[in-house]
Simulated scan of single mutants.
Amino acid sequence: MNIPPVARRARFALPAVVASAALLLSATACSPAGSASASNPSAGSASDTSVPTLAVNQAAADLLPASIKSSKVLRVAIPTNEPPTQFYREGTQEMTGTNPDVARLIGDALGVKVDIQVTNFDSIIPGLAANRYDMTVSSMTPTTKRMEVLDFVDYMQIGNAIAVPKGNPAGIKDEHALCGKKVGLLTGSYQLTVNVPDYDKECTAAGKETIQRNEFQDTRQAISALTSGRLDTVLADSPILNFAATQNQQIEVAATYEFAPVSVGVPKESGLLKSVSAALSAVIKSDAYTKVLTKYGLEKSAITDARVNFAQ
């Protein structure tokens, strides 16, 4: 499903990037209201060990830069434990979820091994700049700012969600009700760096207090703060909060909105854009892509066009 360019989002030329990387990390998903919403992951997703595979797409593999053709390895940065988009398979240190599985499909199409390297979200762009990683599949929104240093190829769509304590004691119905509230946010996220500044402007214009920002390295920490009464709400990616609400009876999702594509990111100087774009075009047309999204209850997050550098 193609998404119109309604949402506002954006992502580096490698030279002066490390100093400014933190400013570029406006984070994850989201776009226009009324787009398809992500359903809850199936109860068996965490225990399902099957990983769909894909045949090599030789045309895409031929476009790989010489360094990757030689190593036959793609180092892929993926954030910390955030089911269903990425999480450790129970009892192991093996990452599963939509992002690791999509990364593996890209590797299949390119005929290379995928080496998943887990890191905090706000460390991904500095890590790409320092050549610790070749690529990221991290639900990253392609913003114009990030595009100063990274190239992007869309691979699925997700949205924003607002989680509240069960019963919604603060009466938060949507993003316009966040003024003056204690809101949990992922460090470096799109919600923190793009959404909240916009919401604060609305609050100020209405003569209300701005949002009380509380940053966390992962959404689980934010949800723990929410259930302990330290927060009024958590604002994060819809798949993560929708899943969390199915696992934790103390919280519920008050609103889900602003769906838009998220993208694979590669450094501009890496020479990977053409090969990754060709690989993703093959991936999203495959049954394996549908199986991966369905496995985690995100079949409505499917897209049909692997757009290149389409800023949100």
Rank of each mutant, 00 (worst) to 15 (best):
R132I: 04
P169W: 12
V196R: 03
V183R: 01
N160S: 15
C203H: 05
S139H: 04
Y155C: 09
A130N: 11
T136L: 04
M140S: 14
Y133E: 00
T143P: 03
E148W: 05
V196Q: 01
D151L: 04
D174Y: 11
R132G: 02
F121I: 00
D122A: 14
G127A: 11
Y190N: 12
L178K: 02
L178S: 06
A170S: 14
M140Y: 14
C203I: 07
F152E: 03
P169Y: 12
G180S: 12
D154G: 10
M156N: 14
M135K: 00
S123I: 00
Y155G: 07
E148H: 12
C203G: 08
K201C: 10
T141Y: 07
D154H: 11
P197L: 10
M147P: 03
Y133W: 12
L150K: 03
Q191R: 05
V183F: 09
N195W: 02
G159N: 08
P197I: 08
A177L: 08
P197K: 11
I162H: 02
L128W: 01
Y190C: 10
C179T: 04
M156Y: 14
A177C: 09
Q157L: 11
D134Q: 07
K145D: 11
L150Y: 06
A129V: 02
I158N: 03
P169V: 10
L192N: 07
L128F: 04
S138W: 02
G171S: 08
L185C: 03
P169E: 09
K173M: 13
P126M: 03
F121L: 15
L186S: 04
K145A: 14
V137Q: 00
C203N: 05
C179V: 10
L178C: 09
T144E: 07
Q191K: 04
D200Y: 06
K181S: 06
Q191D: 10
E175F: 08
L178E: 03
V194G: 03
T144I: 11
D122K: 13
T141K: 11
V164S: 05
N195Y: 06
K182I: 04
P197Q: 10
T136V: 07
I124G: 00
A177D: 15
V153N: 02
N168G: 11
I158A: 08
Y133R: 00
N195M: 13
D154Y: 06
K182H: 14
T136G: 06
A163W: 00
D198F: 09
G127V: 00
K182D: 12
Q117R: 15
F152L: 13
Y199G: 01
V118S: 05
V118R: 02
K145H: 13
P165V: 10
G180E: 04
T187Q: 13
Q117I: 15
E148F: 07
M140E: 09
